[in-house]
């Protein structure tokens, strides 16, 4: 068995793959936190359809509730109202116990590679605990994955010995080896310098070309959003729901030249306006809260 689109037995370009699925339907989702009686509506009646094999990017001001949405999607938190379907099957609904699963793997904001495991041990962790395949074969698959992205030779290193850019790539491979249906990326390149970030963008775009996994990518970097996404959803400030949906009509495969494309600049202008409006609202709300 090999990772879809990356193994030797996969076609040259897998393209959208019906078998793998990855179709997400977010329906009227509301998430209310109630810490010590303070009612915080993080997400309100948010509906969003994500097609299998789509690269969806969510943009919004900090603290707007987009991470809450991701946490509900991932199964880390329950939702207050509404439901979420993955390939037609409900994965989250009120009163339903939260259940993360390897069909939708999260790549975290500040990285979550286990510091006490080597690169190889990290990557084979999923197959190992799921007992889906023999450990020897999982190790071989992990080595192949590393080799395919030009990271051979680091199997025995610990995360702390690697640059943060390499750490992020390893973390993405650790997710990928489980053949998830969806990748949930929560500002995964935050804190990287510009050069490392552009390397990561190319890495993720190449990966997306080969796997066509459904991507749910959160960021507050507009350039990143438009450069990577098929669709960019600008969220309102808390409570979070879609304000503006931009179809990114830049051709794939993309590279850095797309950043100078006039269509890119037009999209950015439209998105900037919406983001700015929401940022101002968030700022005023913050002032009110402080007053």
């Amino acid at each position: 068995m090999s990772v879809r689109g990356l193994g030797p037995d996969a076609g040259p370009k897998a393209g959208p793959d019906a078998k793998a699925g990855g179709d997400i339907s977010i329906r009227e989702v509301t998430k209310i936190y109630d810490p010590d009686g303070i009612h915080v509506v993080a997400v309100e009646r948010c509906s969003l359809e994500i097609a299998a094999g789509e690269f969806l990017v969510v943009v919004g001001p900090s603290g707007c509730g987009k991470t809450s949405l991701l946490n509900v999607l991932a199964g880390f938190e329950d939702l207050t109202d509404g439901e979420i379907l993955l390939d037609g099957k409900p994965i989250a609904a009120p009163g339903r116990p939260v259940e993360p699963g390897s069909d939708r793997i999260v790549v975290f904001q500040n990285g979550a590679l286990f510091p006490w495991k080597t690169v190889l041990e990290n990557i084979v962790y999923g197959p190992m605990v799921q007992r889906r395949r023999e450990l020897g074969r999982a190790r071989q698959a992990a080595r192949n994955l590393l080799a395919q992205v030009g990271l051979e030779g680091i199997e025995g290193s610990y995360p702390a010995e690697l640059s943060s850019g390499v750490q992020r790539r390893v973390e993405i491979l650790r997710a990928l080896i489980n053949e998830p249906r969806v990748m949930l990326l929560d500002e995964p390149f935050r804190g990287l310098d510009a050069v490392a970030k552009s390397v990561m963008h190319q890495f993720l775009l190449d990966l997306f070309e080969r796997t066509r996994l459904t991507m749910f990518f959160i960021t507050h970097d507009l350039d990143e959003a438009i450069f990577l996404g098929d669709r960019v959803v600008v969220m309102t400030t808390r409570p979070c729901c879609p304000k503006l949906v931009l179809q990114v009509n830049l051709p794939r495969p993309r590279d850095h030249r797309a950043l100078g494309d006039t269509r890119f600049l037009e999209l950015k202008r439209a998105a900037l306006e919406a983001v700015h409006e929401e940022a101002l609202k968030a700022f005023r709300a913050g002032e009110r809260e402080l007053a």
């Binding site: 993360p100 390897s102 975290f108 999923g126 605990v129 650790r174």
Partner: peptide
């Protein structure tokens, strides 16, 4: 232990 490691472990299918 950072909560993120528990979440990552659960995501990856840990019991």
């Amino acid at each position: 232990i950072d909560q993120v490691y528990f979440r990552a472990a659960k995501c990856l299918g840990s019991r």
